[in-house]
Design a protein around this nucleic acid. Structure first.
Lengths: 205, 205
DNA sequence: GCCTTTTTAGCACGATCGTGCTTCATCTGC
DNA sequence: GCAGATGAAGCACGATCGTGCTAAAAAGGC
């Protein structure tokens, strides 16, 4: 009876439009009208798939979290497959950390949208649950990575926590700088900073 | 002839209202009407002192940059007064880096407003010049600090640049986390992370 | 006491926003 | 072929925004 449309695919098209708008014009410009235009639909159509503006944005937040967390998880498994200390292991670690940086066009959109939602969650309470989920997911992966990199400090829980938090902070700071000063914070500079941080991790303990 | 009002003081009152609104409700809520209400004035009065909304916001950005840069400069002079390696020197360095973190209520407002304007500058071109000035000012201080902390690497320009950028990234990341997850990223955690980073800097080279 | 200039206050316009609601088109199952 | 569910589109309302503009209020100089 109904007109058959792949609803999930349509929803994803709309979410992609949201991502493009946030990446280019910021979260505050991601209104229903702008999103509908970008997706080539009418406002009423977008609202057919998302009950409200908040639901659309929260769902978009959720999608970008899943995308990033999925890439992180896959990269973590690559790290765990390599022998600690080997060059391949080192490269896999760099690859993992690079998932959180805007090193190519696709990841640039993702981390930009991701950061926009996280900062917006400070003000807009509807984003808070997803922001907390995002934080837990990333912290879990980076925490496991730090445990892997600092096996000698396994008994010193506080050292592991501090180092995980330090690595997380450096990553978020790099991400911020790469997004705000892209001409200065190049991909090479990101890699140099990560190398320096890792070498400090290896030698320090 | 005129009604005598200290125009500069009035402008500062309005700017303070802008700060409070941004810190509590975000930059996008800092409209002329909200700012006027917060300052206890009428919209027309605010517009008497600031030609437009953009001028008000850009001037507010400039004020917060000067505040932070001034504190950084003063802290840098304290650092330079102490003998490198002494406990007093170490404490002065921590004090300097803490100027960029929301460790008390006053600094929390400042760094929150500061971050809001910097991220907005990615989208709103009117903020770009001040954002660039902010970046230069902070990078100059942190750069001098890194030179002071790594005298042995004075000839390796690239090492100094990388370490300055790494310290900047860690600071911005800590600031972001402290603002977004204030219950987890406490002042003590910030200090632990900074201590770990500095100890890595001392031993690494 | 009045005049002039600064300060304060307010109105009105067009633009944008989210959203409740209605209307039309489209396609499937019978 | 047609009934009915579903997708697509649009209107209208109230709220908020920046801004051009006007007008009242306040206060020092004469």
């Amino acid at each position: 009876m109904p007109k058959i449309v792949d609803a999930d695919a349509r929803r994803q098209d709309v979410v992609d439009a949201v991502f493009r708008i946030i990446a280019s014009d910021g979260l505050e410009r991601a209104s229903l009208r702008e999103v509908a235009d970008e997706a080539g639909l009418a406002v009423g159509s977008v609202r057919h798939y998302f009950a409200s503006s908040d639901e659309l944005l929260v769902h978009s937040f959720s999608v970008v979290i899943d995308r990033i967390a999925g890439r992180l998880q896959a990269a973590l498994e690559s790290v765990l497959r390599e022998a600690p200390g080997s060059p391949a292991h080192h490269e896999a670690v760099l690859q993992l950390l690079g998932q959180l940086l805007p090193l190519d066009e696709e990841k640039a959109v993702d981390v930009c949208v991701w950061l926009a939602f996280r900062t917006a969650a400070r003000i807009k309470a509807v984003f808070a649950p997803e922001a907390a989920r995002s934080h837990r997911a990333v912290a879990a992966v980076v925490g496991q990575l730090v445990i892997q990199l600092l096996p000698d400090s396994a008994e010193q829980q506080d050292v592991l926590v501090t180092e995980a938090e330090r690595l997380l902070a450096t990553l978020d700071g790099l991400c911020l700088h790469a997004l705000l000063q892209s001409e200065w914070m190049t991909a090479q500079m990101c890699r140099d900073v990560l190398e320096a941080h890792l070498s400090g991790l290896y030698n320090g303990r």
